[in-house]
């Protein structure tokens, strides 16, 4: 099993009330109608942001937004999965379920970041890649696979944050990074609790129960060696105070960037590879 540096996660204070939440309570918090999305955080985290569109191969995908801006005065590339808060917004961004062109746009912008020596900051917030005929025709499997490949070898620091829902390969495509932070109520899973319940008990309605045994919380991710940090939210959840939550994200990014930007790129790439290389549990008898 992986060696996890728990120092950072442990150093972040958490109130007792928050610690006693069940994973299913966190599921309810991240589904709160008022939960901030990347569109809310963007102006609080970045200045001079310019959005860039299109994958230069097929089209543009509103489920993933990307562009360049400044963080703490440093030029950065931002790539983010976009959730909506109402039907209208969700129609626009396809409920944050990207098509292949979204991932290809992400790779295009990441390569530009590499070329111009900008760090990349990714925000994960998706139930998963979109499951549809067109997505299959345009090779959603290949687009995710290629993202994993490209980000693993991208010669610039990559920091990722899970804002709410980290669903399966569609989330991982923005999750191959040097440092992963998770908002304290966010979840990261291989399959939705609903899907898990329907497979395990043939009953999708038991999703809360599934959620509680799946080990998908921020603390679980730190103990499994998948995430490095837990980012505190406002009391009771990010929806209660966008600004405080954004400040905490900002602090995580600032610390992570200054740490990773110092490291020689070959060393950084080795560390990135080994972070994932170590994940897994098995015996050899």
């Amino acid at each position: 099993m992986s060696q996890v540096d728990n120092n950072e996660a442990a150093s972040i204070p958490e109130s007792d009330a928050v610690q006693s939440l069940l994973p299913s309570d966190r599921l309810n918090i991240i589904r709160h109608k008022g939960r901030p999305t990347i569109k809310d955080y963007m102006p609080l985290l970045f200045t001079d942001f310019f959005e860039m569109h299109g994958d230069r191969l097929y089209g543009d995908d509103n489920a993933i937004m990307g562009g360049i801006g400044r963080f703490d005065g440093i030029p950065v590339t931002v790539i983010a999965e976009v959730k909506g808060r109402d039907v209208y917004e969700n129609k626009e961004c396809n409920f944050a379920m990207p098509h292949p062109e979204g991932y290809r746009k992400s790779m295009r912008l990441a390569h530009q970041a590499e070329k111009f020596h900008r760090p990349v900051i990714c925000f994960i917030d998706t139930p998963g890649a979109f499951c549809g005929v067109e997505a299959e025709k345009r090779g959603v499997g290949e687009a995710i696979a290629r993202s994993l490949y490209e980000f693993m070898t991208l010669k610039t620091p990559v920091i990722s944050v899970v804002l709410g829902e980290g669903g399966s390969g569609g989330a991982l495509a923005l999750g191959v990074c040097d440092k992963l932070g998770m908002l304290e109520n966010s979840l990261y899973s291989v399959i939705s609790p609903r899907g898990f319940a329907s497979i395990l008990w043939k009953d999708a309605s038991r999703e809360s129960e599934a959620c509680n045994i799946m080990r998908i919380t921020a603390e679980d991710m730190v103990s499994l060696g998948i995430a490095e940090a837990i980012i505190p939210e406002a009391d009771g959840g990010a929806h209660n105070d966008f600004a405080i939550t954004a400040e905490n994200i900002s602090e995580f990014l600032s610390k992570s960037l200054s740490e990773k930007m110092k490291i020689d790129i070959d060393v950084l790439l080795n560390e990135r590879y080994n972070k994932f290389r170590k994940i897994g549990e098995y015996t050899e008898m």
């Binding site: 995710i144 696979a145 994993l148 490949y149 490209e150 693993m152 070898t153 399966s168 390969g169 991982l172 999750g175 191959v176 990261y188 899973s189 291989v190 399959i191 898990f196 497979i199 799946m214 080990r215 998908i216 679980d220 991710m221 499994l224 998948i226 990135r272 590879y273 994932f276 290389r277 994940i279 897994g280 549990e281």
Partner: peptide, 25 residues
């Protein structure tokens, strides 16, 4: 991915793809 191993199984996608990238390089 193997659901029974949760998010650990998801990470195997990144791990194997990273290894593929290194072989390619």
């Amino acid at each position: 991915a193997r659901m029974q191993e949760g998010t650990v199984s998801l990470m195997q996608m990144a791990k194997t793809s990273g290894a593929a990238a290194r072989l390619s390089q």
